[in-house]
Design a protein around this nucleic acid. Structure first.
Lengths: 245, 245
DNA sequence: CGAGCCCGAAATGTATACACCGTATGGCGA
DNA sequence: TCGCCATACGGTGTATACATTTCGGGCTCG
């Protein structure tokens, strides 16, 4: 071990707890890690030692283990026996399947949600889109990613069918993970033209089928931007663990 | 509370461990409860005390808690603070959403799976359908439910898109729960004509769209057979006690 | 006689101790 | 000098002890 700064160190602290979270519940810990992975502050492969987390959050390992078990259930982290948990690192096949599943589910969510949002909700949605655009133009990448995720999660959260909504939220998270894994250098992840703005417009106008079609194209375009050709795990590892000067 | 035979007692023992499962892993415990709920041996509302389960399986509560946490993540059980876990009892809204979600997902799974099964797999599928029919005619309800579930789970397991396949498995389980909850007395749950046999035929012929359409109709018919009109007592109370009388 | 209160059994919530496993370090030998 | 092996360390796996809460029975008071 030498000039690490690798993605496998135990630097989860900075990404998880900017200020002390003393006496956190398992739910808050779950959400903290969830949010950190969603916004790509915890990149795929990040290691999550139970003892470090327990000290970080000021609770015993029991609580940490419960949070980690739930995260593993959601495919956010991988837990192998007697090994430290790490943020999931899906392969190329699984990545394509995640996108296909999300196209199916998100399309239906758009169809169901279009025309059902009241004025307040629509304002909130458009505010998110505007904030995303602003963050993009300002170069605040962290904020942009956050807002971009929130646009999709907002629609999932307000879908009349919450079973589908929950599925979509899980797929959005897994999509965020694979984007962090396979994105080309410098690509503007999930900021494709004004897709989100147009999507919000179609949703507000109740044009469900058009919104679904747009979401479908949006996701196809996003998948196209990824580097999904290399099949060798060794190459993947090399790219992930690159010193990244 | 009087002539109970209620679904809330602690008789999980008989349904879970016919013979002693000494030193079971959390995975095997998870699967045991999962299977028992799937086949409706553990009806909705069944209570699952940690201490009883730990003695049953011969492990400490740590293992039990891990299994229960995973089951709660899958919406198989409900865990409320300081209360015993119980098999989930979804309301009518959630039930309709589960069916809608399953129609969407299972339709796509059929489309993707049709024409991809080799001869061995097709034989296995048709054997399941035959066993289900046999169990139905013999009146072995337990076996019939098991085979019926397995038909759907078999297709989910062999879907080329395993992300969707896993989603479908979860939805099949939740469907089983709501069927047990809302089925009319004496209805032949999920044995509608020869739907499964015809489905297997369409799958083997590679007719994905027709298989998807059949699955869609199959699920609609199934939902129609349920009693989804009667309001839950709790819901009644909530409506009565709401502020705006 | 009925309603309310108190208390105890039993369940879960949490922390901790100990055993086991995997990995990395450092020494030893060819 | 390079490669192999033993040992130490850090991590998770599991069990258990203790604190806290809930629910029920039974007593007492009005």
């Amino acid at each position: 071990m030498a000039t690490d700064s690798d993605s496998g160190n135990t630097n989860a602290a900075r990404a998880l707890a900017p200020d002390s979270h003393r006496k956190a519940s398992d739910q808050s810990i779950y959400e903290a890690i969830y949010e950190a992975v969603l916004t790509q502050r915890l990149p795929p492969g990040s290691r999550l030692p139970e003892v470090a987390l327990s000290e970080l959050f000021g609770v015993s390992r029991s609580i940490i283990r419960k949070a980690l078990t739930r995260l593993a259930s959601d495919h956010v982290i991988e837990q192998r026996p007697n090994q430290m948990a790490m943020v999931a690192r899906p392969g190329v096949d699984e990545t394509r399947q995640i996108f296909a599943a999300r196209r199916l589910v998100e399309g239906e969510v758009m169809r169901l949600t279009a025309g059902t949002l009241n004025k307040t909700r629509l304002q909130e949605l458009k505010r998110l889109v505007k904030e995303e655009k602003s963050a993009h133009q300002s170069g605040r990448d962290q904020d942009r990613v956050h807002c971009s995720m929130e646009v999709h999660r907002f629609l999932a959260r307000h879908c009349p069918n919450q079973v589908l909504g929950q599925m979509m939220r899980e797929l959005v998270l897994r999509t965020s993970i694979v984007i962090a894994l396979y994105k080309s250098p410098g690509m503007s992840a999930c900021f494709l033209g004004d897709d989100h703005a147009r999507l919000a417009e179609l949703i507000s106008q109740g044009k469900g089928d058009q919104a679904a079609a747009l979401a479908h194209r949006h996701l196809c375009a996003l998948e196209e931007l990824l580097d999904l050709n290399e099949a060798d795990p060794a190459i993947d590892l090399a790219r992930i663990l690159r010193p990244e000067a």
